[in-house]
């Protein structure tokens, strides 16, 4: 897109969308949609509120714990799937089912089993993100060129060395891509989990705001979560970019 010979980056089209939002809000077209500017003002107030901060901290904690477990489990599953034909076929079936299943329907079950607290949120995060990490890790392991394995073997690598010195690094670009996808899903999972549980952390805030028609606060909270998700995934994206050069050298 060029205007007067200047390249306008695509991100700037978001400004148009935001202006549309602002106009719709100012005209009061829908009572659930306050003007964007009011939401931004509210966002700054919200992040200073102690109830937001403690809720955000609780949510963040569940997120980090859940993600750590999901990464370890997902990468291990992916390598297991890449290790032999039977494991691939059996685990592959389950991982694929779980990756595309409407896991939100399981959240009520988790609430029953793990109570209405943080544990349910953590399990939700794990449930939402593990499978995509496993699938991407497997894709990475699957695409490692056979000659790289042969190279490791012919220079005397043990099975453990082959795994930690060659295969893990060779699959790293896909593993990172999987983690990024897993993060995005985990944030979605955390939102869904908290909407359904809605007695802890940010979920309670969501419920309070929407029950009391505090739409500015509601949107501010939503945007805070959007920003969190985008920051996190661009951090992983940056890491991915660092290892991208060697992903490109493979065929």
């Amino acid at each position: 897109m060029k205007i007067f010979g200047y390249d306008i980056p695509p991100v700037f089209s978001l400004l148009i969308w935001i202006s549309l939002w602002e106009i719709a809000g100012q005209l009061q077209l829908a009572f659930i949609l306050p003007p964007f500017s009011a939401v931004v003002v509210e966002l700054f107030e919200l992040v200073q509120r102690p109830d937001f901060q403690s809720a955000a901290y609780q949510t963040f904690e569940s997120f980090v714990i859940g993600m750590t477990i999901a990464i370890i489990a997902g990468v291990a599953l992916g390598f297991l799937m890449g290790s032999n034909r039977i494991a691939n076929s059996v685990l592959g079936m389950w991982v694929n089912i779980m990756a595309s299943a409407p896991l939100s329907s399981l959240v009520p079950v988790l609430m029953l089993l793990f109570g209405l607290g943080q544990l349910t949120i953590i399990v939700t995060v794990i449930l939402f993100s593990t499978w995509i990490i496993a699938l991407d890790t497997y894709a990475g392991v699957h695409h490692i060129s056979p000659s790289l394995r042969e190279m490791g073997r012919s220079f005397g690598a043990s099975r453990f060395q082959l795994l930690t010195r060659v295969l893990f690094w060779a699959a790293l670009p896909e593993i990172l891509a999987g983690i990024r996808m897993g993060l995005i899903r985990a944030v979605k999972g955390i939102v869904i989990g908290q909407l359904l549980v809605s007695v802890v952390a940010l979920g309670r805030l969501f419920r309070t705001f929407s029950d009391n028609f505090q739409f500015e606060e509601f949107w501010a909270l939503t945007i805070a979560l959007f920003i969190f998700a985008l920051l996190f995934s661009s951090a992983i994206g940056w890491l991915e970019h660092k290892v991208e050069y060697y992903a490109a050298t493979r065929n």
Partner: peptide, 17 residues
């Protein structure tokens, strides 16, 4: 494989990282 043999690969098989 053994230490008395060393292999040179068609596609080089270098560690890209």
């Amino acid at each position: 494989p053994g230490p008395e043999r060393a292999f040179v690969f068609q596609d080089f098989a270098l560690l890209p990282w």
